[in-house]
Design a protein around this nucleic acid. Structure first.
Lengths: 341, 341
DNA sequence: CGCACAATTCAAAGCGCTTTGGAACCGGTC
DNA sequence: GACCGGTTCCAAAGCGCTTTGAATTGTGCG
């Protein structure tokens, strides 16, 4: 069933039917309702490719996920983020398009996306420090919103991000106030912008309290369980052990907890953990009482908001970049306590 | 830069340029290389919408993710699955389209997808027992591959699945051979087909060994950490505690481990755990020595294969359904030991 | 009743590509 | 020199939709 058939069936022109369907004013209410009814009955759906060709809009948003050949990891945050974004798209009648990009081919790929005309805008995931994609996309002129920010990029661009620095400063401060002095940081890979900012926050809190920044208490790796376990195990075997850990991911925190148990220590009493928590639906941090004391910020919410920002950017062509900084909540769970003396 | 401009630039007709670009034989090698060079230099990319309109193919595959309004959970497996599928699509020049479908609107949505013509085929995620979508899609005539199967559906259809039943039978058998008699099952929601099959496997192993199936040792819920924790905690507080747990997810297994620790027991010595492991990139089950004894099957690999099955289904129009059963590996980790006597 | 003007409706062009059905050209053959 | 088959190229139609510009119908008023 296409427009032509539908209009023949109704004995109207394609023009009129098209207008009736798309809510243009120059068609009488009478015919409009006739058309809508027929469309409903005959199960008519406009062909989106043809529509796109005619209007020049794709009615789709692209999500570009960098796939590093070195670290094969799929960002666990991704599922929840697109679930959030998907809600916004569904409401607006947009489709969501996914592209996996091997990191060597980035420049080419964005050009491709632009000229193939499959999407009206894109969401950029996983920004690194001084991310080249931002300049590239600005140059190309494809609307985009970054999930995160990129330190050292000076162009104006649209982004939505958690206040990573503030959150980690706050979390570290919280531990210091509990009497902790040797606080370890198990961070993500620090070429990633979010991880870089988190370290800054952690260091700021230490310095503000006259504590020295000890490189031997800092790690930066892909945030797996095993990473948390290994790092904590090694640190807890020293003569001077850390009394608290700040983790960039709940998964890493789980590894740390395992190391603590293995060492015969008790969480919160002997060693404290505070972690960032993206509020992932399948990795919830307990329920009424959180397992881990955490800096929580829903990535699903971020997805929803990012999508809406992008859609409004697309709706108003030459609009100025939008930015949005989300604050993480510090929620107290069962993983922190006063420093053992 | 479009075809018309390119052909004018080359002083050739659009026909010839199009043919040269798409590798048709009726164009001399000479002009072909001229065309290719010009396309390269001028950075020409065919508009995919126009191409789709003209050929009737969308060059895109849809992934439809059911979003239940009750359980807000995003399947954690999803990220890895599409990472795998994405690899296959990239090679074949296909795009990947995501659609989130609230479960009430399923029927309408698939119809929509079909008639909007955005995709050439779809991958069906999260099949339940007697899943209606399979009949629906067969009727509509849209090529599809199910990730999983659906018990009680009698039509032929294409699927790729892990041998869930066999795996859980084997895992349970393994525990029985270690001397365990009271073995708990912490399963996923059992209207999901995979969970249903896993229970069957578990029960089969018990029966084969003359053990009774004890409903009080079986749970069926969304596979979170807290679920594992709660269920294990409750069971371990009984007078007759289970000596081993079979879990449907590594996340749940982590919760069980926490409960074991909290109860002052030691994993493997006092209580054993065996779990299904989807080999998720961000939730790896240890490295050299796995943390959990597990039934492992890479969901990323499944994604890659599912995509390839679907592409070949699309390439050969009336082809018969393809099916593929993957076997899970039983890998021995540090979470199992002989039953405490 | 006839006219101006608004309210409806329509035919046709165009979006960028593929593909059909020929046309033009080439060297070789009788 | 006419003819032929093969090679190389082209004009034009068509995919399903939107949108421009024009035609048709309806309405109010002098």
């Amino acid at each position: 069933m296409n427009l032509k058939q539908l209009s023949q069936h109704l004995k109207l022109s394609q023009t009129t039917v098209s207008r009736a369907l798309n809510g243009y004013p120059e068609v009488s209410e009478n015919t409009r309702s006739r058309v809508l009814k027929a469309a409903q009955d005959l199960n008519y759906r406009p062909n989106i490719r043809a529509k796109g060709l005619a209007t020049g809009r794709a009615l789709a948003i692209g999500h570009v996920i960098p796939v590093s050949t070195q670290h094969e990891m799929v960002n666990p945050v991704f599922g929840d983020f697109i679930a959030g974004a998907g809600e916004s798209y569904a409401k607006a009648g947009y489709d969501m398009m996914l592209t996996l990009v091997p990191d060597q081919e980035e420049a080419r790929t964005y050009q491709d996306i632009r000229s193939r005309g499959t999407v009206d805008g894109i969401i950029v995931h996983g920004p690194v420090i001084n991310d080249e994609r931002i300049a590239l996309l600005s140059r190309i002129g494809l609307p985009f919103v970054v999930h995160g920010r990129s330190t050292d990029v000076n162009l104006p661009y649209s982004w939505i991000d958690v206040n990573n620095r503030g959150a980690f400063e706050r979390g570290t401060q919280f531990l210091i106030e509990l009497g902790h002095r040797r606080i370890a940081l198990l961070n993500g890979l620090e070429h990633m912008d979010f991880a870089f900012r988190r370290r800054k926050g952690y260091e700021t809190a230490l310095r503000n309290n006259g504590l020295s920044v000890d490189a031997s208490l800092m790690r930066s790796e892909e945030m797996t369980e095993v990473y948390g376990y290994r790092a904590a195990r090694e640190m807890l075997a020293r003569s001077e052990t850390p009394t608290a850990f700040v983790c960039s991911s709940i998964i890493t925190a789980i590894g740390v907890r395992r190391a603590i148990h293995d060492a015969g220590l008790v969480l919160a009493r002997d060693v404290s953990i505070i972690t960032h928590d993206d509020a992932l639906s399948y990795l919830q941090n307990g329920d009424d009482v959180p397992i881990f004391t955490a800096l929580r910020s829903s990535v699903r919410y971020a997805g929803r908001e990012a999508a809406e920002m992008l859609l409004s950017l697309i709706a108003v062509p030459k609009s100025a970049p939008k930015t949005r900084l989300l604050e993480a909540d510090l929620i107290i769970g069962r993983s922190t306590g006063p420093a053992a003396t």
